[in-house]
Design a protein around this nucleic acid. Structure first.
Lengths: 211, 211
DNA sequence: TGTACATCAGTGAACGCGCGTTCACTGATGTAC
DNA sequence: TGTACATCAGTGAACGCGCGTTCACTGATGTAC
């Protein structure tokens, strides 16, 4: 399980040196996620995050350069966790060939959804990343990275596809996969399990169909 | 071309009675869209919108109950325009049968993308709708309505699919379609035309495949 | 093992600023006779 | 056709509030000898 490169984002502040500091930083991110879910990107504030975390504002600025750095770090942490899941999945099925991969897309979707569900406000974090111009790059870069990794694994399995076409198809599948992840929480008229199965079905075709 | 029901959202304020008022309201929405694209949902403000529109703040509150009403109206206007496109497409191809429809998904994507491209800040409007809890319903309701209309048109063309499965597949296709629309503007590594063609290909399969 | 000292983590209090919104009003437009 | 009046559209000025951020400081933790 390799870690993603996005996790090494140039820290806006030096990383904490003591265990206490590490935990405080994590708590600030947890609280920020919670509040994103509760009040939304529109209303969240640094003062609010500090109050909920039981800290005074200057403590936050010890760990984050500004408000956007908090949200960026929150997004990076989430995507990093999703990448861990992707790595595990690739390690497990990619060596077994195309059929094994295609037959287990469902598992990948489910595992990714589990990460999203576990983190408070994760869905709102993803949405905020897209909606705030200053943060949009985090999401795009992460999706590209996921695409690159998948392309690397798939390339030998589908030699008939050019690298260009493969990259495009995988990139779009990644976008679809994350859209599905969001829909799971958003569309109450559909059952989660059904959506996952259906998405896996669609994605299987996107891979196999030669043209 | 029937108009969408979403366009009849309970007005937070009475509609303008004079032509001057109608134009002012439109201008406020245009400016709001522009600013969403320029500064993002995080920084946009009613005062900023008024300043750019050459009005004083109370003028805005004559047409909109509060800040969210502006953004909601902006979202409704955009989705209404997309619905007009959908209606035209359905009127044109649905009567000709499944093959005609499947063969022209590309056109629908292109026409929808054109609407998004024409409106300043349209992409950011869509993102804001998703990211702000108070506005999220607009997007969901619009996507459901689009789904309902497509399902109605498709149902007789694919009698082998249960209503439930059909609704689910169409709903997910709609989500995918809009995700693609956003990606067109976001993923600079892919050519717009390629993305549209590829998306149409994927969507064709989602319709035809029996299970 | 004890202590002096360096470094790290967090506080108290406040700042200037622009936010969303409203009040009481004036100017523009439409209409009845 | 002209004018009095009703309604609609927009203004000037301000409000209380909470925002993001910082300064100078104290308390907690780790380390060298």
């Amino acid at each position: 399980m390799t870690r993603s490169t996005t996790s090494t984002a140039r820290p806006s502040r030096a990383a904490p040196k003591q265990e206490r500091g590490v935990q405080t930083r994590e708590r600030l991110l947890d609280v920020a996620g919670e509040l994103l879910g509760e009040v939304g990107i529109e209303r969240i504030s640094t003062n609010m995050i500090c109050a909920r975390a039981g800290l005074t504002p200057p403590a936050l600025y010890r760990y984050f350069k500004d408000k956007y750095a908090v949200l960026e770090a929150l997004g990076l942490r989430l995507m990093d966790r999703q990448n861990v899941v992707l790595s595990a999945w690739l390690d497990r099925y990619a060596p077994k060939g195309l059929t094994a991969v295609a037959d287990h897309i469902e598992d990948l979707l489910r595992a990714t959804a589990k990460v999203t569900a576990a983190e408070p406000g994760a869905i709102w974090t993803l949405r905020a990343l897209r909606a705030v111009p200053q943060l949009a790059h985090v999401r795009i870069e992460s999706h590209r990275m996921v695409t690159d990794r998948l392309v690397k694994a798939y390339a030998p399995l589908v030699p008939e596809l050019s690298k260009k076409v493969l990259w495009r198809r995988v990139r779009m599948s990644v976008e679809f996969g994350f859209a599905v992840d969001e829909m799971l929480n958003e569309e109450s008229r559909l059952k989660r399990e059904d959506v996952i199965k259906e998405a896996a079905r669609m994605l299987r075709w996107s891979l196999r169909d030669p043209e």
